[in-house]
Amino acid sequence: MHVLVLEDDIMARELLKTVLYGLNMNIDVLEAETYAQGRALFQQHQPTLVLCDWTLADQDNGLALVKFIRQQDADTPILMISGRSDRQTVVSSRQQGVTEFFRKPFDPIILGDRLKSYLEKQAAAEAPEKPELPAVSSWLQDIKARMTPPPTLGGTRDIVTQLNASEPPSVQDLAKRWRSSQAITIRLINVANSGMFKRYGKSVNNLIDAINSMGVTMALQQALALSLDQRDQLSHPALAQLSILRCQEAEKIAATAATLAKQKQVNLAQSYTAGLLYPLGDLALLQLMQSYLDQGGELNNAEMETMLEKLGWKYHQALQQLWKLPQELRDRFAAAHELADEEERPELVLMSVAVDRVKGNTENDDYQRKLGMLGLAGEAQS
């Protein structure tokens, strides 16, 4: 954006530049001391705003530049800045096409406020038109494009990596990493003080004791659950509500899977983690739908549900591949979403059973078949 400043007083010119750069550092200020210089710069650059003084040292005045500009351009804003403020000067300026008149010495703050409105209006006029978005179904169907860059999920990837590392972080490492996170600190202290971990009647009141109480793996899983909650990043109320519901459901699935894993004496930590990550693809989709809306797209609640149903698992698989998740987790994800007919491994069957229980899909023969495979037929479903 070019702004032409015709002012022969170097101090006044520097002050005008300071005001302009304070509004937008990307402005290209064209400086002229004479009418001839101002005219040449206007012809060469076609500035979007002109500031000019009334009186110039070479006996010309800024009004000559105004007349020249208005002969070919009726729209470019021209602001006259002058030590003269008598009625005839102001009227003459207006009659020749001056947009606004400021008297010297001017207040930089007041002038800045007025210049801001001109610059913002011009920036909006110059902004390239946003390309029209395709229908949301087509936009989301292009998974490769939507994964560049991939949706951010509040540090979820980093925590999953730590959970699956051959050498997990130490208690001290986690405490140092999380000491500035109030949300994680509060959650871990609350969990540590719950009936599951509280010992000897002594309350935990700091982060490092909370991690020690529950262990590194459970602490990471609690941080994982917290990272998946995307409600603060979703300004659309329906998207935020869907995120809340998905996360609440995931925590129930994780707890149910952990209980079943303990009964069957299989890897409890992996079962719990897989349960927490059950809605991973849906949560990525919710972020992308918010991005679609932010770019001017339109989306109704029915379309949100349809996209989650059709594409949630595809995005889940895309993130699994992108994050290079271990096969043990991938198998659990697949079983939770749809158990293969021939699958009999208890660590996978129990994931399907956990999802069925949380979703209330327990009144069918397939559920009973899976219970039988786990040796739990006839047992209570708590």
Rank of each mutant, 00 (worst) to 15 (best):
W313P: 04
T48D: 03
F68Y: 15
P134D: 02
H337C: 03
M307E: 15
G215I: 12
K144S: 07
E342R: 13
N26Q: 13
L30V: 01
N205K: 11
W313S: 06
L348P: 03
I186S: 07
L376A: 06
Y200W: 13
E347W: 06
A219S: 15
L348D: 04
I184S: 10
Y315M: 06
A238Y: 07
A377Q: 13
A302T: 14
W178A: 02
S82L: 03
I27L: 15
W54K: 05
R87P: 00
Q222H: 12
S203F: 12
D8R: 09
Q263P: 00
D9C: 05
S243R: 06
T89V: 12
L20A: 06
N301E: 15
D158G: 01
W139S: 00
A74I: 03
V3A: 03
V90E: 01
F197R: 11
S227D: 05
L115K: 07
S137W: 00
Q71I: 09
G195D: 11
Q241F: 07
D142K: 00
S93Y: 02
I78C: 04
G83P: 02
A12I: 15
A240Y: 08
P237N: 01
A302Q: 15
E328Q: 15
L6D: 01
D365C: 01
R345D: 05
I109W: 06
L376Q: 08
A127S: 07
L234Q: 02
A302H: 14
A257N: 04
L20H: 06
Q317R: 14
D142G: 00
L239W: 04
L339F: 08
H316W: 07
A336N: 08
V29P: 01
E347I: 02
L374Y: 09
L293E: 08
G22I: 08
V266G: 01
A269Y: 07
A254C: 11
V19L: 09
D73R: 13
